[in-house]
Design a binder for these strands. Sequence first.
DNA 1: ATGTGC
Length: 485
Amino acid sequence: MSLPPQLRKVAPTVWELPVSYKDGMLVPARIIATEGLLAGMEAGVFEQTANVACLPGILKYAYCMPDGHWGYGFPIGGVAAMDPTSGVISPGGIGFDINCGMRLVLTTLTEEEVRPRLRQLVDLMFARIPTGVGCTGFVRCSRSEFRQVLEKGSHWCREKGYAWPEDLEMTEEGGCFGGADPDAVSDKATLRGFDQIGTLGSGNHYCEIQVARPENIFDAATARSFGITIPNQVVVMFHCGSRGFGHQVATDYLQSFLRVMTTKYGIQLPDRELACAPFRSPEGQAYFAAMKCAVNMGFANRQVILYRLREVFSQIFHRSPEELGMRMVYDVAHNTAKLERHLVDGTLREVLVHRKGATRAFGPGMAGIPACYRETGQPVIIGGSMETGSYLLAGEAGAAATFFTTAHGSGRTMSRHQAKKMVRGQKLLGEMEQRGIYVRTDSWGGLAEEAGFAYKDIDLVTAATEEAGLSRRVVKLVPMGNIKG
DNA sequence: ATGTGC
């Protein structure tokens, strides 16, 4: 595939499309990638990042991260910071799965201890953590109780005994975005979401047993600070979001914005999928308040999954979760919009940062991250494909360039449809088992869609974020067992 | 991603 001729290299890992590239661009578009990753990007990534640069109030640049690929409106990997006074909020810049994110949990077990009981462990995980489209959880939640979940996120979990106090500290924003308003949420969204707390879902959502092997440690001091202290230490990583609830919130407000964007606010954009409303408008504020409900639902969802996970490990290894050292390293979202303070042209100001398939990566010394990570920078959890491995990174000062944002995962290289044509789920499962990875799934087609070859090389993506100064590699985590929807 | 497609 040929790159747009207007694309200019402005730094070894920064590629820029000028405002002259497309009518309506207000700022240049910047792709963060190595030459190799850039060459593999779909044409849609350049078009969509340039489209994002047309959104009213966008500051500095429209960005796409090295794992970027084609998405709804924005590319997945898209980052856009808006002036909250004159700018817009766009659901396409956050994604349908609001607060899709990653959580990483430690154990003090080693690969040698877990390997003999791996099948038993993964089987019990699969039995206790609901997976698949439309799955529901064990938490019984009335409508009024669900409002509490939406307002409080992980705090609700703590009140109900599903969280350790320290879990909240180890969650981005303490596991709760303030200002969530359940009245901004449709009944339809509530109806889809109230029974989905503590469920994994489908697609690329999974829960994985991983091992930190000594040869995969890049930064030993930071690894120690993050709790990786034992050779061949076993950890658990999982990836999921706000399920049908967040999806319905996104759908509701995309429709609402499409009705008013042009007629009421006179906004013209190159793509309907960029539907947006002025951030300060009633519609924009309602979406922001509803989006925060979905963010909090996502945090609560991952917290209840952790509660179940602790039960599962405790049952298999006959020790309490505390004795098994099942502490959280961190929980970090990659589909949100948030008001943050950033330096823009030398002035510290409040901006609305959209991150869609992009992870907040606060660097060393910054406020807003747990005190224990103040010197290292924020842990960044990057999920790879279930075959190739994942990474734990640390936020770097250089991420100031991207409003303190880095990549979120591998990024697809082919469509789900294409992947499914190339491999059968049963065959893939057999091959993975040969390589010591035990997988349980309730969808063979879904498994095939997640094959390693359908994703960019996670080693190259994380190396690119390091070269760009956004985040540094701490440890690569290799899969042992996986449950997926 | 998603009661997978109005």
